Amino acid sequence: MNKCHLVYLACTAAVVGAGLGAAPASAGHMTHVVHAGQSIQKAVDAAAPGDTVLIARGTYRESVTVTTPGLTLRGMGRGVVIQPAAAKTTAKTTAKTTGGATGKDAAKAADTCAAAGNGICVVGKKNRKLQDVTLVSLTVTGFTRSGVYAVDTDRLTVRKVTAVKNGVWGIAQEASARGVFRGNTARDNGDAGLFLANSITTEQGATDTGGTLVEHNRLEGNRIGVTVRRLRNLTVAENHVTGNCAGVFVVGDENKPKAGAVTVAANRIVRNNKSCPKTARLDALQGSGVVMTGTEDTLVTRNVIRDNAGKSPLSGGVVLFKSFVGTTSERNRISDNELSGNLPADLVDQETAKANTFEANSCRTSRPAGLC
């Protein structure tokens, strides 16, 4: 066993199959332990594919960028808090704490993550996705953009992460596939607690996520609990969504292929009655349970959707909302949900297309009448 040094304070052996492209698997993966006052980024930079960076309880004022496949970034619980660096921290200081002359590329990446206002960045390449990274059991808070931001990843797992009071998104991912987001808490973030998209900046057709899974998360006090934008083949299941301006958004546009083939199942979506003002992209929000716009072949089933009440054009229990760009929602199925106390109605269909199905829902009110 190799001798541990610097932040290598513990070594473990395991067989973990992980890799980026042709990266070889290792039979002796390392655990790099970081204590309060030390640099998480320095440990990440020193890690090899398949290694674990284990973070002790404490507050760490830095942004962290992960570009190593198969890496696990594991905190020792929610008492591991990652916050923005102090304003006086300079690029020179950051380079020093992320490896100095031997870690210039990593330092530059960490600076880029911080400059963009993100806490933890997991970054691959467009033609070479970063594979099998895991983030688990830590808190990210106070960043101007996202607590966790991932791009060009494959099989990213985010578990038991608490993302609180970040300026835009709690946990965000774009241009990625086969992600798992399980058991996280996203609270009081400026936009979505969980935000998943094909591309944040580019107009293009929906992409297939290969079965990305969003389950058992607690999403509260955000503008939107979960946003799924221009994606296909994704499941949002068994989440607790409350106290947001809107619960779950499934959003498409005029591009092809159309967004859809999303399953929203067995979630508890209650009292999402926070009031949020109109933005350049979206009307004012309040009292929305599940909103679908510009989507196809989406299934909304076995959810409990209660007491979502507001006067926004998007208010209601389950709302098929007429797309701002005129794209119709077609072949969506809303079935076997338990709805009550939603205003202006439990089910709201603003679509001109009549190719959507409402069946076997337990509800009292609908617009137009007759959907319950």
Rank of each mutant, 00 (worst) to 15 (best):
N2A: 01
N2F: 05
C11S: 13
C11Y: 06
C11L: 14
A18R: 08
G21E: 10
A22S: 13
P24G: 09
A27E: 10
M30E: 08
A36N: 01
A36I: 08
G37H: 09
G37M: 12
G37C: 09
T52A: 14
V53P: 09
Y60M: 09
T65F: 09
T65K: 03
L71I: 07
T72L: 12
L73Y: 15
L73C: 10
G77Q: 04
R78E: 11
R78K: 10
A95N: 12
A101P: 06
A101Q: 11
A101M: 07
A109Y: 03
N118Y: 07
I120K: 02
V122I: 15
R128K: 14
K129F: 15
V133Q: 04
L135D: 09
V140T: 06
V140F: 14
T144W: 03
R145A: 10
D154G: 03
R155G: 05
R155T: 14
L156G: 14
V168A: 05
Q173A: 15
E174Q: 13
A175H: 02
A175Y: 07
A177Y: 07
A177P: 00
G179E: 09
N184Q: 04
A186Y: 04
G190T: 10
G193E: 11
N198W: 05
Q204L: 15
A206D: 04
D208I: 11
T209W: 11
E215G: 00
E215S: 13
N222P: 00
V226Y: 11
R230D: 15
T235R: 13
H240W: 04
G243N: 06
V251A: 14
V251F: 13
D253F: 12
K256Q: 15
A259F: 10
A265F: 06
I269E: 03
I269Q: 03
I269M: 01
I269C: 01
R271C: 04
S275V: 13
P277S: 07
K278L: 04
K278F: 02
A280E: 04
A280I: 13
L282V: 10
L282N: 02
D283E: 03
D283P: 01
V291M: 06
T295L: 04
E296C: 00
N303K: 13
G310E: 14
S323I: 03
V325H: 13
G326I: 15
T327R: 08
E330M: 01
R333S: 14
S335C: 05
Q350E: 12
E351A: 05
E351R: 06
N356M: 05
T365E: 02
S366N: 00
L371A: 07
